[in-house]
Amino acid sequence: MRSQVRSPIISGSGLVKRFAGFEAVRGIDFQVRPGEAFGFLGPNGAGKSSTMRMVSCMSPRSGGDLRVLGMDPDTHGPAIRARIGVVPQQDNLDSELTVRQNLHVYGRYFGLTRKQVRAKAVELIDFARLTDRADDDVEPLSGGMKRRLTIARALVNDPEVLLLDEPTTGLDPQARHLLWEKLFALKQSGVTLIITTHYMDEAEQLCDRLVVMDGGKIAAEGSPAELIARHATREVLELRFAPGEQHAAVDAVRDLAERVEVLPDRLLLYTTDGDAATTRAHDRGVRPTSTLVRRSTLEDVFLRLTGRTLVD
């Protein structure tokens, strides 16, 4: 019956997380629907991981309301954890066990029978493309292999919700694309995905909907396309100059775009028609070393909403 419920599978309202003298999450509202891939984006310290930890019932909320699978994490933590999968930011596999043993041992924590975990391990080892390494120790595996195993392990209980905290950080492009493929497959099978990531292309690829968090609050919410439409123009014209020379061109191009951003070696013109803006800039005597017209991306939205200042 649970599968037919269309109400939110996770909902937060006025959700707050405080640590000693510091408010990491400052009253956020969000809803995740069954079967969708939902993203939390934001710079370091935005409150993404704190939110994920509250949702995964590993961190009690300091205020507001939170429901996961219709239950309150404060009172039903184990029951919720039995039905979700958690992929932490940092792998926490047992490096002194084999790939298969990691899955066996972890599956048993979820009350699965030995027969169930044996069968599940075979399925998940195949899913993680680790069949050749199934009985090898985890320690010497590559970062990508460990990450795939961590994700596979989080699926041992056939979770209804899979929480992935920066799932591809530190992986090479091949490993990232392989993981995306796996996450697509999971989504197709109906698993609800909650993802935090720094990678905008990852968010665009994977997320149906996302929120951009900044300073513990939600700065924007919507699908990637909606966010781009709302917070950026259709195209971006990049005018590249020798460092320092870009400042002289600012006044000449200011009215050619909705917004002009000055970077150390280029000007970014946010406009609906990049080619037309290029022609007009040229007509006004602007001579960049190179020009590039591209579509706006989620990264443009992200930087607009959260700024370019480095956050540690």
Binding site: G35, Y109, E160
Partner: peptide
């Protein structure tokens, strides 16, 4: 918003009692 009807069965994990948890 693309929402996929869940085709997979519900999660197989269960909460076990304290003694069982310790034994696992």
């Amino acid at each position: 918003t693309a929402t996929v009807e869940r085709r997979a069965a519900a999660a197989t994990g269960v909460v076990v009692g304290s003694w069982r948890a310790v034994s696992l």
